[in-house]
Write a protein that binds this DNA or RNA. Structure first.
Length: 876
RNA sequence: GGGCGGUUAGCUCAGUGGUAGAGUAUCGGUCUUACAAACCGGGGGUCACUGGUUCGAACCCAGUACCGCCCACCA
């Protein structure tokens, strides 16, 4: 048969993938029907930032749900998987402001209107990149439902949520000490701060007492903040300072009078047991100050520069150079007692890694406790299930101790806070529609709050606003709550928890039933991928090199729930080889069925046909069970092993003689098995399976629209499995003997076989032609007596023996070595089992079937040893 | 300071009570007409350590060590 009419020998993924990716989108295969009467299965994609280009985290984050989506769709579900993007305030600001800076511009110079125009322009231009990439990579998303977190519907919903929460008292404004990033020029919420240990110093500073009698020494890591000190605190029970209670110290440099207060929160054992109190620049001091009525003196501004209140000597200095100057002056004036090296945790901005500055300012907050309570309950009662479940503990830990959420940001790109301040009576107006006049005094001199909302505020609404909320749309009714949310553990607090809280609050329902938490993608040495390390593995580059299917399969085969994934290119090369294997198996099948009768006569099935069907049944069951539990790695492993090591290595090889003999049913089973196998593989490798499927006789519009195999469709055939098991044993034994004696495959040799019981004998009789073919034997005959004086190479199972007359083939001393080694291994095993069986405790207490099994194993091993020993002494 | 996870073959990882597995790497042999991105075969592990429970432990319990991550107001 000429090969030219068939598929090429080497599979080239790129053209195939591009073709089908386009086809799926153009044919709208993944558009869900809201009127369908099939059961629904819905998900929303975690919206990638519009700034980004696709990275491995994304690739993982859509590959796994795509596997589920395709699987469920093939199982007959009405699958709706909604895509979209997130406006990502800070990230967009960083990108745009950086490009402005290159032109010598700042956002202030540009102005708010113009900046927003640039941002939208930028979003239109680059925001589509990820969407394009997702389409190219074949994620089976419903593109008719694509959303953006700043589209008009979203703006309306965000405003409604804000107004409702405000009216209920769950959103409030307060003058509070918050975290500010001096570089990003905005405040951040607590969870946007990353604490990292840094090498710092602990400065001991002496503050003289006002009455001139003595002094008190305090320890601080931030001496520059002393300029804003308004008190000193000691522990009430600390005997060292009892005489100082209620007295007054003098702040060096500034000269301010500092009352010495007592508070339980002071640690007696740290430093000197006395702490300076700077209410405007430290969270603990802020509380202390509020409780004890201390003044708040702001000495560092939002950009990290010293204010006028820091005094003329320091005003305008950066906080770090100010530290040096303050320390120098303290030293010069004798106030600096000592300086110690000190490692401590310092908060950094999660976006730009700048050290965070506590910053006293008016901000908007969400009161979290009332929202958290039902969200905790939903997980406690199992309405929402984390996979793996131990992530629920992380969720609970955070939720129980939740703090109020600072939601205002001093940025422009985002949802502007719907609050107005009356310039005449100072009233605050929060409203759905832009107000014309003050509701208190009727003045029309209103000024809208300059700030926008934290990006995560709108992200929290993603699962229901994307479906039409606050309208009661059919989509919302049919597809909400969603079934599965797949995302990384790093955003459980940022996103998952807040979606649960907001979902319950505004829809009265959970937003999703299952939360699948995937790990971080790391490099092959388990290091985080980062640009600075230069160890980024770019998914698009991998796609180019190995194909999307190989990338997807690699991610799936490494995805153990909740565990980080360490990725290597070798692994991907291996899976490209797997794709190629599938391709060539398909080529082989297609070559052999072209123009042939494919009718299936059950009477005509060969042993191999019966065996592969039975194996396929079991693998199908295992695959479905694994996916049911989100065990992607296990599912991938099962299908990989089945295709490569059962379908290709044994079944297709066994088909060759049958095909030669012209057995029609084998062709039928071959193509039937190939087709079912492709369906099983499709969720993992959508492209190559589609391409091959389209070459099969009777192919439909798309493999994605076929129905997923179920184990019930096929019958098990234990007899065939057991016979092929025996076949594999014998063939492997003969091959091993050949390989160890360097008997090349093309050298046709004779072999003898015998069985130690009648049943094995009759089974071997059936298997002889197969063994001959697979082991490359010229002949294989039953022979009762091997001991006829001809030196042989021997192998044995428990109930059978093979012998290859060795004359002229090999060096017998090598054979003796081989037999000795094998016997030794068997004897070690036998010794272990004997010890176990000699223990009365084992016989008495272990379950009967375990004991029986152990006995049977021992008997088998002993039988083998006997046979091999006889062979050995025969040679000797 | 609290919590979570990890430690199994050279490497990356599966494996929740009954004779240690995969991929890859490695060594040897093959172009056996689907596939050299392939085929056949081999070697390679006191399952981190110490105790305990059990007839039996990689697996359960207690502790130790090292690695990683998250949370945390000792300035």
């Amino acid at each position: 048969m000429s090969e030219s009419s068939f598929l090429p020998t080497v599979y080239d993924p790129a053209p195939v993938e591009e073709k089908w990716a386009r086809f799926w989108v153009e044919e709208k295969l993944f558009t869900a029907d809201v009127n369908s009467d099939r059961p629904k299965f819905s998900m929303v994609l975690p919206p990638p930032n519009v700034t980004g280009s696709l990275h491995m985290g994304h690739a993982l984050c859509f590959t796994l749900p795509d596997i589920i989506a395709r699987w469920k769709r093939m199982q007959g579900y009405n699958v709706m998987w909604l895509p979209g993007t997130d406006h990502a305030s800070i990230a967009v600001h960083n990108v745009i402001e950086q490009s402005l800076a290159e032109k010598g511009l700042t956002r202030e110079k540009l102005g708010r209107q113009e900046f927003l125009r640039v941002a939208w322009e930028w979003k239109e231009k680059y925001g589509g990149i990820i969407i394009h990439q997702l389409k190219r990579l074949g994620a089976s998303l419903d593109w008719s439902r694509e959303r953006f977190t700043m589209d008009p519907g979203f703006s309306l919903a965000v405003r409604k949520v804000f107004v409702d929460l405000y009216q209920e008292g769950l959103i409030y404004r307060d003058y509070y000490l918050v975290n500010r990033c001096p570089r990003c020029q905005t405040v951040l919420s607590d969870i946007e701060i990353e604490h990292r240990e840094v090498a710092g110093k602990l400065y001991y500073i002496r503050y003289p007492l006002a009455d001139g009698e003595g002094s008190i020494v305090v320890a601080t890591t931030r001496p520059e903040t002393m300029l804003g000190d308004t008190g000193i605190a000691v522990h009430p029970d600390d005997p060292r300072y009892r005489h100082l209670h209620g007295r007054v110290a003098i702040l060096p440099i500034i000269g301010r009078r500092l009352p010495i207060i007592t508070d339980e929160r002071v640690e007696k054992d740290f430093g000197t047991g006395a702490v300076k109190v700077t209410p405007a620049h430290d969270p603990v001091d802020f509380d202390l100050g509020r409780r004890h009525g201390l003044e708040q003196v702001v000495v560092i501004d939002g950009a990290g520069r010293m204010t006028e209140a820091a005094g003329p000597e320091f005003q305008g200095l950066d906080r770090s150079s100010c530290r040096e100057k303050v320390v120098a002056r303290l030293q010069a004036e004798g106030y600096l007692v000592k300086v110690e090296d000190y490692r401590h945790n310092v908060g950094h901005c999660y976006r730009c890694q700048t050290i965070i500055e506590p910053y006293l300012s008016w901000q908007w907050f969400v009161r979290m406790k009332p929202l958290a309570q039902p969200a905790i309950k939903a997980v406690e009662q199992g309405e929402i299930i984390f996979v793996p479940e131990n992530w629920a503990k992380t969720y609970f830990d955070w939720m129980y101790r939740i703090h109020d959420w600072c939601i205002s940001r001093q940025l422009w790109w985002g949802h502007r806070i719907p609050a107005w301040y009356c310039q005449d009576c100072a009233a605050t107006i929060v409203s759905l529609k832009d107000p014309d006049r003050c509701s208190q005094c009727g003045s029309s001199r209103l000024r809208q709050d300059e700030d926008i909302l934290d990006t995560w505020f709108s992200s929290a609404l993603w699962p229901f606003v994307t479906l039409g909320w606050p309208e009661e749309t059919p989509d919302l009714r049919v597809f909400y709550p969603t079934d599965l949310m797949a995302t990384g553990f790093d955003i459980i607090f940022f996103w998952v928890a807040r979606m649960i809280m907001m979902g319950l609050k505004f829809t009265g329902k959970i937003p999703f039933r299952h939360v699948f938490i995937n790990g971080l993608v790391r490099d092959m040495y388990r290091r985080k991928m980062s640009k600075s390390r230069g160890n980024i593995i770019d998914p698009l580059e991998m796609v180019k090199k190995y194909g999307t299917d190989a990338l997807r399969f690699t991610l799936a085969s490494l995805a153990v729930p909740g565990m980080d994934i360490s990725l290597s290119e070798e692994r991907m090369a291996g899976n490209r080889a797997f794709a190629n294997k599938v391709w060539n198996a398909a080529r082989f099948v297609l070559m052999n069925i072209e123009g042939q009768d494919l009718s299936l006569n059950p009477q005509e099935l060969t042993l191999a046909d019966r065996w592969i069907r039975s194996r396929l049944k079991k693998v199908t069951g295992e695959l479905n069970a694994a996916l049911e539990q989100y065990k992607f790695y296990e599912a991938a492993d099962k299908i990989y092993h089945f295709i490569w090591h059962e379908f290709c290595d044994w079944y297709l090889e066994l088909c060759k003689p049958s095909l030669k003999a012209g057995i029609t049913s084998t062709r039928a089973v071959m193509v039937e098995t190939l087709e079912r196998t492709l369906l099983l593989l499709h969720p993992f490798m959508p492209f190559i399976t589609e391409e091959i499927y389209q070459h099969l006789p009777g192919a439909g519009k798309s493999i994605a629209l076929t129905s997923f195999p179920s184990a019930e469709e096929i019958e098990a055939d234990e007899e065939a499995e057991s016979l092929v098991g025996l076949l594999q044993e014998v063939v492997t034994e003969v091959r091993t003997i050949r390989a160890q004696h360097r008997v090349a495959p093309k050298v046709k040799i004779k072999a003898w076989v015998k069985a130690t019981d009648e049943i094995t004998r009759s089974r071997l009789a059936v298997l002889i032609p197969y063994v001959k073919f697979l082991a490359g034997l010229e002949s294989l005959e039953f022979k009762e007596d091997f001991e006829a004086g001809i030196p042989c190479l021997r192998g044995a199972g428990a109930t059978w023996e093979v012998a290859i007359p060795a004359a002229g083939l090999v060096d017998l001393s090598a054979e003796k070595e081989r037999l000795r080694r094998e016997i030794k291994q068997i004897e070690e095993e036998i010794a272990k089992l004997q010890t176990r069986l000699q223990s009365p405790a084992f016989i008495e207490r272990a379950p009967q079937d375990v004991v029986a099994e152990t006995r049977a194993n021992l008997a088998e091993l002993e039988a083998r040893r006997k046979k091999l020993s006889r062979s050995l002494s025969g040679i000797e």
